[in-house]
Design a protein around this nucleic acid. Sequence first.
RNA 1: GCCCCCAUCGUCUAGUGGCCUAGGACGCCGCCCUUUCAAGGCGGUAACGGGGAUUCGAACUCCCCUGGGGGCACCA
Length: 480
Amino acid sequence: MVKVRFSPAPTGSLHIGGARTALFNWLYARHHAADGGVFVLRIEDTDVARSREEWVVGIQDTLRWLGLDWDEGPYLQSERFDLYLDAAARLLAQGDAYECYCTEDEVKERNDAAVAAGRPPGYDGKCRGLTADERDALAAEGRPRTIRFRTPDEGLSSFTDLIRGEVRVEWSLIHDFVIVRSTGQPIFFLANAVDDLDMGITHVIRGEDLIDSTHRVLALRHALVGGSEVADDPKFAHLPLIVDAESRAKLSKRHGAVALEDFVTAGYLPEALTNYLALLGWAPADDGHEVMSASELVAEFDLDRVTHAAAGFDRDKLDWLNGEWIRRISLDDLVARVLLMAQTRFGADIDVEVVAQAVAIAQERAATLVQIVDQMAFLFVDDDEFAIADESWEKVVGTDRIAEILTAVIEHVESCDWTVDALALQPVTEALGIKFRKAAPAVYAAIEGFHRGLPLFDSMELLGRDRTLARLRAAKQRLG
RNA sequence: GCCCCCAUCGUCUAGUGGCCUAGGACGCCGCCCUUUCAAGGCGGUAACGGGGAUUCGAACUCCCCUGGGGGCACCA
C-alpha cells in the first residue's frame, strides 16, 4: 500500500522547491501504482491569516500544468478544524497536553532572557503544572489561552528516514509546543499528525527543512493513537533542499524566477521542468540518459536513489533541456503552445499559417517558447512601427561599407524574380568583395530587427518582397 | 548559542574496497557544418575539501577538522 500526499501551505504561488516535492510524491505514487499508489493533495491552510483562496486555486493550476494529477482532494484543513480540535481535547484529557496562559510577548521575553543568560531558547514549561484553580484565575484575568503539547523531558526520539537513515535527537531539546493558538485555531503539527493518521498516509516525502519537526509530529501521532504504534508510522523521506547554484543560498527572487508561474510565462515546457526537477536530487540508475519523459521518470524513479546534499538550481541546464523538449514534441503541438503566446503579444487576428511556418523553422533552434515568439516578432509588427533593436543597430552602423551593402541588396531584391534562388544574397555581397558572414548581421537586423534570428531565406519569404524592401530601404535611410 | 543534516569537475550527478590513470550531462573552450546568430556533429578543459585510522589495497569504512545547509515560532 502506498499513499502519499503533497501538502502545500497556500501562502504564495507554487515555487521550485514545492514543485519538486510535489513531483517526487507524484512519481513515487505512480511508480507504485500496483501498490495502490494514491496521490493526495492536501492544502495546509491552518494559518488562516496568511492563507489565500487565490493561492489555493493557483497551486492547483500549476500542478495541473505540470501534469501532476491527484487522486484525492484537495482537502482543505480549514474545513477540518473540528477534527483537530477534538484531537486536542483528547490530548488535554489524557494529560499529553495542557493549557498555557503565557502571552506571546511573555514567552518571547523569557526566551530572550534565556538566550542572554546562555541557556537554550524554548518554552520554559511555566504553565505545565497549573492547577484547575490557577487556570481559572488566569482565564478570569482575560488572558489568552493556547494548548501546548507536553514533550518528554528525557530520552531519545528517533525515526528511520528512507533517505538519511536513523535520525535521532534528545527530547530535552524539544520543548513543549503550541498545538492550538489562542484564537482557537489548530497549528500545523496537530493538523498534520491528525490528517496523516486519518488519511492513512504511508509515505511522507517532503523537504529537508521539515526533518526536525518530524519528531514532534510523530510524538503527537503516538499520543493520539495511544501508545507508540510505531509499526503503523508512515515512512519518511526528506529530500535535499534546492539552492541557488551560484551562491549556494536558499533560492529566492534575487536569483531570478522561483515561482513556477514565472517559468510558464518565460516559455518553459512542463515536460522540461518536470524532467529537470526530477534530476535535482535524483539520478536514474543509468545516468547516461537525462532527457526523460514523465512516463520514463515514473518507471525509473525510486527513493533509494535520492541524493543527500543540497542541489544547486542551474538555469543553463534547464534551458538546454527545454530546447531538447521543444525539439521532441510534435510541430502541431508546439504551434498550439506558441500560438496563444503569439496572439497575446501580436493580436488575436494574426495569420495562424504564418505562425505555423515560423514555428517550424524556430523549432530546431530555440530554447524557450518566448524565444520562438521573439524570433517571429518581425513578421507581425507593422512596417511603420518596425525598428531595429538598439543593440543591433550599433552593430549595423559598425559594419564596414554598410551603405554599399544595403544598396546592393536592395537593388538585387528589386530586380530578382523573388524565388528562392533569387533570394541568395551571398553573391551580392561578394560582388562587392565582402564576405557574406561580415555583411550578414546588418542585413538580418534590417529585415528582422535583430542581428540574430531566424534564417534569412525563410524570413524574407515569410515577410514578402514588399515588406522586405521597405525594411531594407528604411535601414538605409536611417543611416543618413 | 544549541541541535540535526550534508561534502566527487563551475553546476547536476555516476560511483557502495580493487573494474577509477574517477564515467556521463549542462556550461565553458576549440574544430567542423553553416546565408549572421543559433541548432547539430566532433574534440578538449575540469573534481574525490584537509588530516589521521582500518586494510595488501581506499572516492567508497571509522574519527577529527574545515566548509556548506537546515532547525530551535501562537509559519508551514
